[in-house]
Amino acid sequence: MLGTGILKGLAETARNFFGSFVYKERLTTVQYPEQRLPRMESSRNFPFLIFDGEDWQKGLRCVSCFICEKECPPKCIHITKSTEKKPDATGKLQFYPEAFDIDVSVCMSCQICVEVCPFDAIKMDNNFELAVHDRFGELVLKRDQLAKSNEYFNSIHPIEAEEVDTRLAAERAAAKAKADAAAAAAAAKAAAAPAATPAPTAEGGGA
């Protein structure tokens, strides 16, 4: 009969209306600023710079090798290399970036900078709340805004961070072992050298 379909439809919408007051699981919308869904681990948007330790100025992994700047397809990275070296997190003397700017309004989130970086110094962030009032000033992120700790990287991308950390630890351990071996060899050589030439000393002593 004419109208029965309409009545069925009205019953259905009424069920939705009252059901949304009774069953909270019907309301699937996440009330965003108060509620947040956990971000997926694979989520990424813009790059940031990793530093080891507490102080970002001491621990920045970047050695300003310009590979990311050259590889960046939209050319959104700008680096100024330092003139003198200073010790990095492992104590080795390295160049460091005097300026490292990323224009995130130009960045296309391709992750090429991350893939080409030989030092694991640049990684992808997933912070999306980047709204600012001035596109030309505030969206060009400076070195201090980009520097984020390794712990932060571990918190947003744990799987990738673990892999990077084990690899870096192995490399550093190998480097340290090599350095130790070299040092030991040098020390042994140094120890052996006086033993091999006791005469001048004795001679000197005699003199």
Binding site: T13, N16, G19, S20, T28, Q31
Partner: peptide, 13 residues
């Protein structure tokens, strides 16, 4: 608000 509830939304809040 009513249309929101019919569509299982909260409506303006």
């Amino acid at each position: 608000k009513g249309l929101g509830r019919i569509q299982n939304r909260m409506g303006p809040n």
